[in-house]
């Protein structure tokens, strides 16, 4: 039996409609966008908005900065001492339309040498860890293949959706 797949946090991303996207919320009054999502109140000072609609964030952005973790982070990171420890990259990505920076782990195999500030990356589904018989799913950033998808963000021909 394959383990149950559960998102590491509910409501932060979706693959509905076949396209993986981060999910934020947008204030109906002032248009401010939030990730992680705000669902009760808009945080913009001077805005009294209380209706926030779920919105997918841009699939692509540009690397704002990046680093890696060479030492096992402490709990609650799902990597107890009984597990094999694999260093990972962390990539901060600037989304142009939202004018915000979103942090995420790099997809497996993305090394520091593959990255540069300003490089275009896209969000892809990923697995954070196996924990208590469950597969924790998350989002990853990975460089956009050079001769891959069209610049408008549509999947390239043949790219698995």
């Amino acid at each position: 039996m394959s383990p149950t797949r559960v998102p590491v946090v509910d409501g932060w991303f979706t693959a509905e409609g076949g396209e993986f996207r981060l999910l934020g919320t947008c204030c109906r009054d002032c248009g401010a966008v939030y990730f992680p999502r705000e669902d009760a109140f808009c945080r913009a000072p001077g805005c009294s908005g209380t209706e926030l609609a779920e919105v997918p964030l841009s699939r692509r952005g540009r690397v704002w900065s990046y680093t890696d973790g060479r030492y096992r982070p402490p709990a609650p990171y799902p990597s107890g001492p009984e597990r094999t420890w694999r260093p990972y990259t962390l990539i901060a990505v600037e989304l142009a339309a939202e004018r915000m920076v979103v942090l995420g782990q790099g997809a497996p195999g993305v090394a520091l040498a593959d990255l540069a500030i300003g490089m275009e990356v896209e969000v892809v589904p990923g697995v954070l860890a196996e924990e208590d018989g469950r597969t924790l799913t998350t989002w990853h950033w990975r460089p956009v293949p050079e001769e891959g998808p069209a610049p408008d963000g549509r999947p390239a021909p043949g790219e698995a959706s």
Partner: peptide, 25 residues
């Protein structure tokens, strides 16, 4: 603070490193 460790394993030095690399660039 719990979430950044849970979801990303983003320790304090990870943030220091992101800023350091920005300075280099």
């Amino acid at each position: 603070d719990w979430l950044r460790f849970r979801v990303l394993g983003a320790t304090n030095p990870a943030y220091f490193a992101l800023w350091a690399r920005r300075r280099m660039a």
